[in-house]
């Protein structure tokens, strides 16, 4: 159809208009537009967000049905600037409202979200994303001792938490992959049973070379970034977490041969 400009408004049934006006104006912080400006069956009240989206509250005899049948996952999400989000957190905390994030471990760096419920049980996510979500992060943990080449078998993937990295032993050698997803700064996890790295934030996946194996729209993501590694004469492996190597695609030369004296050729990459 292509004629839709965007969302105009979300109509919500409520059982006590005044009580809900207090919530949407005083707690959510929307701007009141006015009462009974819309042709509805009951008393109604309009509120506006910064971007112009409207919320239309319509009082009904009740009860209202925030969730259809047994479907409890229905929710509406608000997007806030980081400043608005900080103000909302302070405002709701001062009111004694719980603002915990049950999925905090799945968020990317800088992404914040909590749920609130209006007086009739309508569920809202209050979300923001700060600039740190897109910054390239370095662990800056210095050089990390990752053991000896003799300690690894082909196929091993080991996590080093201080360095936010995975060391991958493939047939051709070693690669130190940064765990920060190249979409946003979620931390990828190695899923041994699926043979891939997985970002719990947006479900992007990467193979053991760090190349994206995601479906649209993450199929074009850049590969996971590398840390340079060096193998000493005694076979010990050291990874430099102070340097990140950016690559446009995963290549065979990204892997350092499992031989004493081998090291990452950093000249092949943009180094940060």
């Amino acid at each position: 159809m292509g004629a839709i400009e965007g969302l105009s408004h979300l109509t919500l049934h409520v059982t006590d208009l005044t009580r809900s006006e207090d919530f949407y104006g005083g707690i959510l912080g929307l701007d009141p537009v006015g009462r009974d400006l819309v042709s509805e069956d009951g008393p109604n009240s309009l509120f506006r967000s910064a971007a112009g989206h409207l919320v239309l509250l319509v009082e009904v005899p009740g009860p209202v049905e925030p969730f259809r049948g047994k479907t409890t996952s229905i929710h509406h999400a608000w997007y806030l600037t980081p400043e608005q989000h900080a103000a909302a957190v302070a405002r709701l905390k001062a009111m004694g409202m719980p603002i915990g994030d049950t999925r905090e471990a799945m968020r990317a760096m800088g992404q914040k979200s909590f749920d609130v419920y209006d007086p009739d049980g309508h569920r809202y996510q209050i979300q923001t994303v700060g600039p740190e979500a897109y910054q390239i992060l370095k662990p800056s943990a210095g050089e990390i001792d990752c053991g000896n080449i003799a300690d690894y078998e082909v196929g091993d993937v080991r996590s080093f938490n201080d360095g936010k990295l995975y060391l991958v032993r493939s047939e051709n050698g070693f690669a130190a992959l940064s765990r920060w997803c190249t979409h946003m700064n979620g931390l990828v996890q190695w899923k041994e049973n699926h043979w891939h790295f997985y970002c719990p934030y947006h479900k992007a996946t990467f193979n053991r070379a760090g190349a994206s194996t995601s479906h649209f729209p993450f199929d074009t993501l850049a590969p996971l970034r590398l840390h340079p590694l060096a193998i000493a004469k005694d076979g010990s492996i050291r990874v430099d977490t102070d340097v990140l190597l950016i690559r446009k695609k995963a290549e065979a030369l990204d892997v350092v041969p499992a031989t004493p004296g081998a090291a990452t050729d950093t000249s092949r990459y943009e180094a940060i």
């Binding site: 979300l10 912080g29 929710h75």
Partner: peptide
Amino acid sequence: MSEEMIMTTGMHSLNHTAMPV
């Protein structure tokens, strides 16, 4: 949208709804 409105409102925009079919 006026700057004054952006300064006074506590929410930027409605972003999405998760709902069943």
